[in-house]
Simulated assay, not measured.
Amino acid sequence: MASQTESHRAGAEVVSGDAICRKKSIDLLEELGLPKGLLPMEDIQEFGYNRSTGFMWLVQGRKKVEHTFKKIKQMVSYATEVTAFAEKGKLRKITGVKTKELMLWLSVVEVYVPEASPEKVTFKTGTGLSDSFDVRTTCSKAPTMASQIESHRTGAEVVSGDAICRKKSIDLLEELGLPKGLLPMEDIQEFGYNRATGFMWLLQGKKKVEHTFKKIKQTVSYATEVTAFAEKGKLRKITGVKTKELMLWLSVVEVYVPDASPEKVTFKTGTGLSDTFDVTAFALGE
Rank of each mutant, 00 (worst) to 15 (best):
L39W: 03
G192K: 00
Q60P: 06
K63H: 11
E31K: 15
K217S: 12
K180V: 09
I216K: 00
I26V: 13
K71D: 14
E150P: 04
T137L: 12
L106H: 02
K242C: 05
V14M: 11
L106A: 03
F47H: 03
I44G: 05
G177N: 01
A281F: 00
F277G: 05
G17A: 03
V121M: 09
G48T: 12
L172G: 08
T269Y: 13
G89R: 04
V135M: 07
V15R: 13
V113R: 03
I238T: 06
P262S: 07
K141Y: 14
W57D: 04
W201P: 00
A228P: 05
F123V: 07
V226C: 08
V257L: 13
L246M: 13
V97M: 06
K100Y: 02
T266R: 13
D171H: 08
V255T: 07
R195A: 09
G89I: 03
E81I: 02
C165L: 08
S132H: 11
A146E: 12
S140A: 13
G128V: 11
A12S: 07
A2S: 13
T138I: 14
V113H: 10
L38F: 02
I20D: 07
K244N: 11
V108W: 05
G181H: 13
I238N: 00
L273P: 01
S147Y: 05
A228H: 06
G270S: 10
V226L: 00
C21F: 09
V59G: 06
L178D: 03
G89D: 01
L203K: 13
F69G: 14
M75F: 04
L203H: 09
A84D: 00
S140P: 03
I164D: 07
S7G: 04
T212F: 05
Y256W: 07
A142F: 13
V135G: 02
K242L: 10
K70D: 09
A79P: 10
E286L: 07
M247E: 13
Q45F: 04
K237I: 01
K180F: 02
V111Q: 07
T271P: 04
A2Y: 14
L129D: 11
P35D: 06
N194Y: 01
P184M: 09
T122I: 14
G61F: 11
H211L: 06
S52D: 15
Q204N: 12
V121K: 08
L273N: 13
S3L: 08
V220T: 11
L91T: 03
K215A: 09
I149R: 11
T243C: 02
K232T: 15
Q148N: 12
M75Y: 03
L203Q: 14
V109W: 08
G155R: 12
I164Y: 12
C165H: 06
I216E: 01
H67D: 11
F55S: 04
K208E: 15
M1T: 15
K208L: 12
G233Y: 14
G272W: 10
L183K: 04
K206F: 09
T219Q: 02
K100N: 05
N194L: 03
R166A: 00
E254H: 13
K63I: 09
D187F: 00
K214G: 02
E66F: 14
S16L: 15
N50G: 10
G61W: 06
E81W: 01
K264D: 14
V113G: 02
E119Y: 01
S130H: 15
F85I: 12
T5R: 06
T99I: 10
M41C: 12
T212W: 09
T271Y: 09
L58M: 11
D162Q: 13
L176A: 08
